[in-house]
Structures are given as C-alpha cells and as structure tokens.
C-alpha cells in the first residue's frame, strides 16, 4: 500500500504529513478511510480542500469502472490468441495461447517443456513482425538449438538472423530481478516492439531459493510477479507462459486385510505413482490454462520412429478443471511439430 506523500497533492505539505503521521494516518488508504471532517480539523485544511485531495487520490490510484458494453466493443478489435502454429495444439487450445491470461506449462524434468517453449517462441515470430521475450532462469537457453531447428526446416541464414533477432532473451536469477523486469515493461522503461508472448522458463528455479522461508517472502514476491504479469498480458495484449515443474513420488498403499479367519494373510501392497505441481497452493489457483507435458515412452518403439520422441500435451482450463483435452506432438531435429 502506497504511503501518503507530498507528490499526491500540493496541499500535502511536510507539516501536514507530519501531523497526519502523528495521528496514524500514514498510507493513502488511512487517509481515504478517515472522516473528511476529522482530516479537516487535524490538517487545518478546509473541507473542500480535503475532498479535493481525496478526489485526486481516487483519480490517480483507483481503477476505472468500465461498462461491459464498452469492453465488448473494444474486445472486437483485440487479439484473443497467439497461435502456436502447431496444428493439433492450436485445435486443442481453441486458437492458441490465450492473450490476457496466464498459461502454465508443466511436466517432469526432461519431458520437453523447454523444447516446446523454444518452438513456441520460434513459431510466434517466424511469420509475423511480433517479438517474444524469453526469460531464462536456468541459464540453459540454447540459441544453437534454435538455429539447428531453423536449419533443419530449411530456413535461410538471412531469415534465421531475423527470427533470432525477434526472440529477445534475458537471464534472470532471482525473484526481485524478475519483478523489476516486469515493472520496467509495465512502466514503459523497457520497450519491446510488438511483444506478443512472454515465456518464463522456469519459475520454480527462482522460487526454490525461498522454499522453507518462515516469513513467506517468496510468496510475497510471487504475488507481485503474478499481479504484474496479469497487467502486462491484459494491457499489452500478450500471451504469458510460466514453466513449472512436476514432481513425482511413489505412494505405498497397504490395504488392510479383510477380517478373515485365516491367520495367514498377506497384505496387498500396491504402489501408486503420484504427481504434484510445484510452487504450492497459492500458485495452483493462478494459471487460467494448464498444459501438462508427458513423454510417451513406448510410442517410438511401437511406431518405429527413429530419433524422435513423442510428447503428449494435456490441456485443462480453469473454467472446467475436470475437462482434459490432449494432443500428441513429435519432438525431433525439426523441433516440436
């Protein structure tokens, strides 16, 4: 919550701010919550002057109330999706990565999350003027891999250079820097021409530094990252992808033997593989779209695909969390197709 400062209004002099502070009116909210008459008595400002300050604060900081009909007209000219240009994936997604919402790409280590993200970056800029911001938090973004994919697809060196220019890569090593990056985009300090997609690969790498914090500072940072991401994706009309990690463990269920007379009972031991998305309960409610990636281990053997891995993408939306749609993609030298 912003503190009440001189910049809010010309009437707010140092002495008035000091008086207010002595009366525990420190933040903008404290000021707005207080009775105007009391503020007038405390500050020796007239009632209209107090109301003028309040109006100025509302004007600067309150959200604007927008009518649904106006929003509808505005939305007609807005883009809704960033196509992935992978036909089967676009079909399942209903057009592509949604604009204005947060998408999570999740899966076990080595399942192809980063490969898919790199492909999405290539495809987003390949046949358009758009650019992509790729936030690499692991330090393993491979320009060589992108070059190889483009080369395998017969892209000329000139086009290759143009494509690579439109994929802006930034290395981020902690949550504070990610927040600064997003705030710089939000405030126009960092301007990226025709930005259509932001990919953060991956978020747990940054959040792992805060696991086990008693003061939950990591969650405070995550909340800020989410709020800024929501703002950028909505106001700048971009898609926003966060890569998350799945963990798995074997849960040993020992079913109790039924009450039978035989003294010689063998406990029925079953092993269940359980999977979990990282980043905790707060994060679980954030993405509007979830893409879970699974490597199809038997597929290549059955279908005699050489040097090729098949990956399954399971898509769920927040509007109906139980409805899962999926598609299978091919991962090879040509990229993800």
């Amino acid at each position: 919550m912003n503190a009440l400062e001189r910049k809010e209004h010309v009437y707010l002099t140092e002495s008035i701010l000091k008086t207010l502070k002595q009366n525990r009116i420190i933040t903008l909210f404290d000021f707005l919550q207080e009775e105007a008459e009391k503020l007038s008595t405390l500050t020796k400002l007239t009632l209209p002057q107090v109301l003028e300050i309040r109006q100025e604060i509302f004007k600067k900081h309150s959200a604007h109330l927008i009518n649904g009909a106006t929003l509808f007209i505005n939305s007609l000219t807005c883009k809704k999706y960033i196509p992935t240009h992978i036909t089967s994936l676009d079909e399942v997604l209903g057009g592509g990565i949604p604009v204005g919402l947060i998408t999570e790409v999740c899966g076990l280590a080595g399942c192809g999350k980063s490969q898919l993200c790199m492909q999405l970056a290539i495809n987003s800029v390949k046949e358009s003027d758009d650019s992509v911001l790729y936030v690499d938090t692991k330090g393993d973004f491979s320009a060589v891999r992108i070059q190889k994919i483009l080369d395998a697809n017969g892209v000329s060196y000139k086009d290759m250079a143009l494509i690579m220019l439109k994929i802006r890569v930034v290395h981020i090593w902690n949550m504070e820097d990610l927040i600064t990056l997003l705030e710089n985009i939000k405030n126009g300090i960092l301007k990226i021409e025709k930005l259509s997609l932001i990919i953060v690969d991956s978020l747990p790498c940054l959040m792992l530094q805060h696991f086990g914090d008693e003061n939950k500072i990591g969650l405070t940072f995550l909340n800020r990252v989410v709020n800024n991401s929501r703002y950028i994706s909505k106001e700048f009309q971009t898609g926003f992808i966060y890569v998350n990690i799945q963990t798995r463990w074997i849960d040993q269920d020992v079913s109790e033997p039924e009450e039978i007379e035989s003294s010689c009972t063998v406990k029925d031991i079953t092993y269940n593989e359980k999977r979990n998305r990282c980043l905790g309960k707060y994060w679980q409610t954030i993405p509007a779209l979830l893409l879970v990636i699974e490597k199809c281990s038997d597929y290549d053997i059955e279908n005699n695909y050489e040097n090729c891995v098949m990956i399954k993408v399971i898509v769920t939306r927040h509007t109906n969390p139980l409805l899962a749609e999926n598609c299978t993609l091919k991962l090879n030298a040509l990229g993800v197709t």
């Binding site: 919550m1 912003n2 903008l28 909210f29 707005l32 919550q33 604060i57 509302f58 900081h61 309150s62 959200a63 604007h64 109330l65 927008i66 009518n67 649904g68 009909a69 929003l71 509808f72 709020n227 800024n228 929501r230 703002y231 909505k234």
Partner: peptide, 26 residues
C-alpha cells in the same frame, strides 16, 4: 439482448494493493 445485459455490467480491473483499497473506497 446481449448488449442490454452488458450495459448493466461494470468491471474494475485491479492489479495492485493500492489500486484495490483505493477502488474499494471509491
């Protein structure tokens, strides 16, 4: 009919704490 419905809907998009509390007061 949809237009009639949407005219009765008002939305405040809120992105941070200050905006949240200021909008509640507003």
């Amino acid at each position: 009919l949809l237009n009639l419905m949407l005219k009765n809907l008002f939305i405040l998009d809120i992105y941070n704490t200050t905006q949240f509390y200021t909008s509640i007061q507003n």
